[in-house]
Design a protein around this nucleic acid. Structure first.
Lengths: 206, 206
DNA sequence: GACAGTGCCTAACGATCGTTCGTTAGCGTA
DNA sequence: TACGCTAACGAACGATCGTTAGGCACTGTC
């Protein structure tokens, strides 16, 4: 007996979610343009035409994948950078949660990063704005730390961009087979980012 | 009077170099699969079939673009990480030259990063091996610093990967229109990388 | 003056692309 | 029993893809 829905992909969700999940895996492996509707359909176990009962176009699938993975994280964590309350320790916490979240959503994040230009202009702009707000919040928070004297970073903007590059880069090399859990790697990055890149002492904040 | 070879692309080089240059720009903008031979040909000012007098296939153009941009840098700079002579200051120098070189070759580097999977398996493996050797040299050099007591990095491998992510990320956000030159940004990254991420003091080496 | 080589052309090949068509089987409700 | 809805089907659409065949004009060499 073979389970008609083998991969646990569509549990309680239905075809739409199954298509999103399978397509995002394929897009991440072979790129958006490298995967045709026929490939998606056959991976789902369906005829190509059937996909159009769930999505209006191929780009619509991409929209559903990228949708708001990143936005959700940002919206839920911007408070940690609030200029009124930010501390070196809240920064460390944010870096840790950032690394872990991005790893847990690595497939959608990879597609979102790689295929941003394939998105409809409006949606791409929305994603870019959201990322920009996160980046600006980091810059602002670092400026607060510099003004407050508990962060010696010499250029808040450059430091923020370097820090974000560093923690966004984790997905490119981390593998679960290694000796460290993603949580451990995240903690180490929090240390390297805040103590190292920004120069904040472990017992710093106001 | 209009210059028959307007963009200075083919000066003294001929069609082949012109095609590589134009194709790499297009691939960087719209991805390898997003750009057809017809688009390349019309950008060059030639018929699609004519390109096959200079390249045997589309993948061959990609090969020529990626070829050995990265390898050339690595081969020319590995000596700076030689375990017998590496110092905090040679590390700083390498970071600086890395950032500048990668920016100067940003188009080919972007294509090489994004389209590695489109390369023939043998060529892709060659590129990966080359990058791996660079990364391993960094890890080894950092270990030397840790053993020598002049680098407090707690995990050389993670530190190396974080450092490389940080400096490789520059191309993703740096724009020449801003107030800082790439050389200045490179210097700041050398400081953040060696003093910050690795924890080496400015007056450190043996 | 014949010849090979180079660089480019027009035209077309088969394959694959995203998408649309008309149809149908199954199910719940009136 | 009849209706409407959902989800799926096979088949095909026009467009575009990478690539090839064959030919034409020019150049330098014997």
């Amino acid at each position: 007996m073979i389970d008609p829905e083998p991969a646990g992909a569509s549990e309680a969700g239905g075809r739409r979610e199954e298509i999103v999940e399978i397509a995002s895996r394929l897009f991440a492996e072979r790129s958006y343009r490298g995967v045709g509707m026929r490939a998606i359909a056959s991976a789902v176990g369906v005829q190509p035409a059937s996909i159009y009962h769930h999505f209006s176009s191929k780009a619509d699938i991409l929209d559903a994948i990228i949708a708001d993975v990143t936005e959700r994280f940002i919206a839920a964590h911007l408070y940690l950078l609030d200029p009124k309350f930010v501390t070196a320790s809240s920064m460390r916490q944010l870096v840790t949660e950032h690394v872990v979240y991005f790893w847990q959503h690595r497939i959608a994040e990879a597609v979102g990063l790689r295929e941003l230009k394939e998105l409809s202009v409006a949606r791409a702009e929305h994603v870019r704005r959201s990322r920009r707000s996160y980046q600006d919040a980091w810059i602002c928070a670092i400026q607060v730390g510099v003004s407050g004297g508990w962060l010696p970073a010499q250029n808040p903007r450059i430091a923020a961009l370097a820090l974000l590059s560093m923690i966004n880069g984790v997905n490119a090399w981390y593998r679960e087979a290694g000796p460290l859990s993603i949580a451990e790697v995240a903690e180490m990055h929090a240390e390297m980012a805040v103590t190292g890149v920004l120069g904040g002492c472990p017992e710093a904040p106001p």
